[in-house]
Simulated scan of single mutants.
Amino acid sequence: MTRLISTGRDTVNYPDRGATAHRPLPAGYHHLHHRTRIGEGRAAFEAAGTAVTTFLAHRTSGMRVRTSAADPAAAVRPGLRVEVGIGLGPLRISAPCEVIWTAYEPTRTGFAYGTLAGHPECGEESFVVDIDGDGAVWFTVTAFSRPNSWYTRLAGPVVPVLQHAYARFLGRHVRGLAAAA
Rank of each mutant, 00 (worst) to 15 (best):
E98M: 05
G49N: 09
R108C: 10
P26V: 06
A167I: 01
G114Y: 02
R17F: 04
W101K: 00
T50Y: 08
G156A: 15
E121N: 06
T50Q: 14
A44S: 14
N13F: 01
A181C: 10
G62C: 01
A43K: 06
T152V: 04
R175S: 14
P72L: 13
D132V: 03
A165C: 05
P15L: 02
A69K: 15
A57G: 10
T60I: 02
A165M: 12
I86G: 02
E105A: 06
V161Y: 15
A27D: 15
A178R: 02
F55P: 00
Y166R: 02
F111P: 00
V76E: 00
P160G: 05
F45C: 07
R92W: 08
A21D: 09
R3K: 12
C122V: 05
G118P: 02
F127N: 01
R146F: 11
W138V: 07
D130E: 15
A165R: 13
R35L: 14
T7N: 09
A21C: 06
G133H: 07
G49D: 12
A165I: 08
C97N: 12
G110T: 01
D10N: 11
G85D: 11
G79F: 08
R23L: 13
T140G: 07
L80A: 14
V159C: 10
S149R: 07
A27M: 05
A103Y: 01
D71H: 09
Q163A: 12
R9W: 10
P26Y: 09
A165E: 09
A44E: 10
A74D: 14
G85L: 11
E125W: 00
M1V: 11
V137W: 11
G85I: 07
E124Y: 10
L177F: 10
T109L: 13
V82G: 04
G49T: 10
Q163R: 02
P160S: 09
A27P: 04
R77G: 12
L4Y: 03
F127R: 00
E83P: 00
R108E: 13
Q163W: 07
P78C: 07
G135T: 05
A19M: 03
N13E: 11
T7S: 10
R153T: 13
V129K: 06
G87M: 05
G87E: 11
I38K: 04
I100P: 00
A143E: 03
P72N: 14
G176A: 14
A181H: 15
H30T: 15
E105P: 00
L88C: 03
A155Q: 06
R3W: 08
N148P: 00
A136G: 12
D16C: 07
T36R: 06
R66L: 13
A21L: 11
T50I: 08
A165G: 15
T102S: 10
A51H: 05
P15K: 00
G176H: 15
A112P: 01
V65H: 06
H30W: 13
A27Q: 12
R42M: 11
V99I: 13
G89P: 01
R81M: 12
